[in-house]
Design a binder for these strands. Structure first.
Lengths: 220, 220
DNA sequence: AGAGACCATAAAGAAATCATAAAGATTTAT
DNA sequence: ATAAATCTTTATGATTTCTTTATGGTCTCT
């Protein structure tokens, strides 16, 4: 996640850079509209923090140029409070408008928000439920990024549960779908496998994901 | 595009409604947190405008409840300016935070912005009767948005009643449909279960939904 | 108003269900 | 063929749910 900061005031620019960096993003500073545009056209960014009052090219113009070329979020920072301008900016494509003086924490929260909305277009075809991710192709399952090794049946069970979060599966359903054979009152075998999956998840997470629904079955 | 407005101040609520309507969206007004949640759980919306200072349920709580069930944008309106709260709200899932007093034009611009970004629809196929909602797939039952935990038979019973509101079920019917076995004069057992369901509903509602019909059975 | 039938609820004992460990059986890999 | 991994069964304790029992209240009918 690379963020381009365009802000002529050095002090504010530094503050922003520090905050962004601390939050785990990569920050690139620029101190004028033209510098910002130059960097924007030669490097790849995922977001822009744009001050409006810039020497040389005006902020509004910068926004327009950026929006012509890309659809990444642009967060506008400005001391101007006139509604007209604000509304125009937003309609012109700004993703947010933060009034100066701002609190860094709010800026960060808004950055995170827009980062979440835009960047993560989940291109991978992993099945994901919270801390659990399942890659069907490679048959790999991770909890909080830590790979756990599941047996065939464990994998099938967990895959089913994650495929339809919240849905309660009866033991019969689970057995027949995960085993692909008929259910003949094998009561405890599903229980045991569920228990084993839980144990493996527990190694890397404090949440008990698989919940029993009494008399019905299990769900995640 | 349907927008749910949750704002206890009538004047502001009306202003918002007019603005939203003029902008070509459909607006639904609600004047308290619980009313908002109720509408949210019974109707389909694409966005929520949420005031923070609400009588009864707090705005923060409303936000949380909405976010649990759906991923539609929630725009928070508030007179509170403390950064802590602001940041928390945004991190909790609010899509925007607009400080009162606001200019309607800005609110509209931000609504348009989020409307453009969100493509997600909120589809729920819950069984609903007034404050009670039942999700058959997840076997979850909520009263006024509060989840109550029902046992298998309790769930089956309530589901039946809600499935055909007003219809009177005899105890025999209830037993045979909910238990899926023959009724052999088990007199009190249905009573007890009904009583237990009532107790659980009572925790979150003042209405006595399940009514006894003397000599016949029960209905909702 | 009073008797009898019916309902409401609490509480306790009985029954069902779940969780887990561990042992034995089966399958898979080397 | 042997070892390792996986699966199923068995066993046991814990937990939840169900039914029964008991008591007091409410309604209906005469």
């Amino acid at each position: 996640m690379r963020i381009l900061i365009i802000e002529d005031n050095e002090e504010i620019n530094d503050i922003l850079k520090e905050a962004v960096t601390d939050a785990g993003y990569e920050a690139v500073q620029s101190f004028s509209g033209s510098e910002g545009l130059l960097r924007f056209s030669t490097e790849d960014f995922d977001m822009v923090l744009l001050d409006l009052m810039l020497p040389g090219i005006k902020g509004e113009e910068v926004l327009q140029k950026i929006k012509e070329k890309s659809d990444i979020p642009v967060l506008v920072l400005s001391a101007k409070t006139d509604i007209e301008g604000k509304v125009n900016l937003l309609r012109q494509g700004a993703s947010d408008y933060i009034t100066k003086p701002f609190d860094v924490r709010e800026v960060l929260a808004r950055i995170d928000l827009h980062a979440k909305n835009s960047g993560t277009k989940n291109v991978s075809n992993d099945l994901i439920y919270n801390e659990i991710s399942i890659n069907e192709e490679s048959h790999v399952c991770s909890v909080n990024g830590n790979e756990i090794s599941l047996t065939k049946h464990e994998f099938n069970l967990l895959r089913l549960l994650v495929l339809h979060p919240e849905k309660v599966y009866s033991k019969r359903e689970l057995f027949e779908l995960a085993w692909e054979e008929e259910y003949i009152g094998e009561d405890n075998t599903v229980n045991v496998h569920i228990s084993n999956i839980r144990k493996k998840i527990r190694e890397y997470s404090d949440n008990e994901y698989i919940k029993a629904v009494w008399g019905i079955g299990f769900r995640i």
